[in-house]
Structure formats: C-alpha cells, structure tokens
Amino acid sequence: MPDTSMPPAVAPPVLEIRGLTKSFGTNIVLDGVSMQVGKGQTVCLLGPSGSGKSTLLRCVNWLEPPDQGRILLSGKLMGFRDGGVVPMNGMELARARSRIGMVFQHFNLWPHLTVLQNLIEAPIHVQGRQRDEVIGEAEVLLDRVGLADKKNAFPAHLSGGQKQRVGIARALAMRPELLLFDEPTSALDPELVGEVVAVMKILAEEGSTMLVVTHEMGFAREAADEVVLLDLGRVVEIARPTEFFTKPKTERARQFLQRYVHA
C-alpha cells in the first residue's frame, strides 16, 4: 500500500483548521475552532442546530470566508497566497476549491443538465480534463452509486435519495482530496436516508477523506474515525466514536447525547 510507505508523522493532514473565527454581524458563529482530518479519515461534525457546524464546513472551501484563523489543505493555505497575507483572487480561489468535493443538504444539482452532464461539467470545464476519460470515470461512479440507468435523466425526475447519490457521485468525479458533506440526509424522507448512508459508509471504508456534518448518529457511530462535537461555535469534545457515544468526557456531550441519541 502506498500509504504505509509514508510515515503519518511526515505527511500533513488533508485538512487542518487552526483558530477559525466567523461572525455574522454581532453573532459569533465560530469562536476559535481548531481540528484536523487525516488522510483516509472520516470525521463527523456533530452539534445542536446553530452550533456552527455548517458554517465551519462552508469556511473550509471559502463559501464563507472566515474572519480569522487558517485552513490548510494538504499543508497548503486556503484563501491566501503563499505567505498568508495576500488573499487569493477569484481564479486562484476557484482552482483551490476544485480540490474539494462538496455534497449539499438540498443536493444543489444543476437542473439544466442530465445526471451524467452534472458529473462531467466541472471536471471538464473547471479542471480541464479530457472529455472521454471523464465520461468513462463518471459512468463507473454512477454504477457504484447504483444509478447507471439514470445517466440521461434530468435531476427533476429523480427521488431525493437518487438526487443525493448523484450529488455524491458529482463530488467524487472531481477526484477530490477532501469530501465535505453538509447534512446530506437532512432533506430526505426517512425511508430514503438508508440508501444515501449506505453509499457514504462504503466511501468511508474505502478510505475517502471525509468531513461530514450530520444528525445521523448511526453513521457517526459506525463509520467515523473521529467525532467532533461543536457547541456555540466552539469545539467541546474530539473523540473516537466508541468513546464518545459510550463514555463522553464532558457534561455538554452527555447532554447532547441525551437529547439526540437517547430521545
């Protein structure tokens, strides 16, 4: 395995967040968040609504530019040019963003494009990759999420679960270093959650590097390497899921589990 040839102490984490703050007006949403995601790891961001989970995720790819703090993607600074003072311009930011795949709560597929076109759009027109190669890869991805037969359908004709599986395949088509999931199952009917979680579990097992904001405690427990509990914009606890769900260290975590898991 190529991974073992490189000692983990040397390779920088895929994502490193240092002292991130973000306010909207007088409302402090993130208050000095630091955490990391190692290569091949799945980290779940948990927390009550309003805790800043989604904002943190959106800061990672600069959809919300943070006020302070650093984001490093495989050791490379996000949002700033080397040196860390001059902000990236639009094109540099776009190039940096194209290294990250994102899956949205409301799928955010492009309605004017077919399923296959949704997958190949950014790899061809942003990353400038070969059309034939991209199509071939996209067809494999659609097959893996069980939607090979839907490649010429338009998103409007798919169920929520199918749309989100397309959303995941679209993110994977970017060959991203990091996958961000922003509450990927929250907009789904309960009976459709399973099919999306199943795909995410496979990705986690296969060693994709994932940062997942979710309320699916089952997924966090079974698939995460680490869970991060966020409350009022601060990291309350970072732990392995087995420890977090059975013997949480903080009172806040106990309250959270009481409310969201045992309720």
């Binding site: 790819n61 959809l63 639009g90 094109m91 930011l93 776009a94 190039r95 963003r97 194209s98 990250i100 795949g101 994102m102 949205f104 409301h106 799928f107 955010n108 597929l109 492009w110 309605p111 004017h112 759009e121 950014a122 027109h125 942003v126 990353q127 679209r170 970017m174």
Partner: peptide
C-alpha cells in the same frame, strides 16, 4: 442552490455565467 454548488466546484466569473447561470 445551483450557483452555490458551481462556486464550490470551482466555477467563477464568465464560466459560471455562461455554463451554469445563462442556460
């Protein structure tokens, strides 16, 4: 939604306008 996704995937400027917004 779609514009935000396009931004996250690295579309910006004229390419965002011509390929995602205008169609």
């Amino acid at each position: 939604d779609g514009i935000e996704a396009a931004t996250a995937f690295g579309f910006q400027g004229w390419r965002l306008f011509l390929r995602i917004i205008l169609p």
